[in-house]
Structures are given as C-alpha cells and as structure tokens.
Amino acid sequence: MSVALAEAIWRGLALYFGFGLVTGIGVILFGLKRLAPGRLPWRVRLVILPGLAALWPVVLLRLAGVRPAEDRA
C-alpha cells in the first residue's frame, strides 16, 4: 500500500467519524426525542454516542422521517 493511499484512508476515516461525532453530539443535545420517545438518561446518551458517530448517515435518515423497513411493511 502506498503512503498516499494509506493517508487517504486515514483522512477518510477521520473525516467520517469526526463529522459523525459532531452530528452525534448535536443529536444527543437536540434530536434524540425524534429517535426515541421518552427521556434518556445522560449515561445512556454517552453510551450511544459512539454509535451515533459510526452510523450517522442512518441516523440522519431516521431524523428525516425514513422509518426502518419493518415499520414500513
């Protein structure tokens, strides 16, 4: 693997998870009610933060109103 390719992978991952972390913090502060009715304790919010950073595209889809396939059936 070339240095350029390795750096591109590193930057891609850093960008993806960095954007995900910012998005996740935003969701935890302002958007959680749209994902899970009811109030989640802060310890649970911290537990789900890494997942928000990793799966932010799906989270944004859910916030936009796209429901899981089972709910649409």
């Binding site: 994902l35 989640l40 537990v47 789900i48 997942g51 799966l55 799906v58 899981p68 089972e70 709910d71």
Partner: peptide, 15 residues
Amino acid sequence: ATSHDFWNHVLGPRL
C-alpha cells in the same frame, strides 16, 4: 457501539 437496545429501535431489527 450499536449493542444497546436503543439501536435495535432506531435501526430496526433487520438492519
């Protein structure tokens, strides 16, 4: 990171 039941609810069981 997605092991909490919250994720089962958000993602849906299939995903």
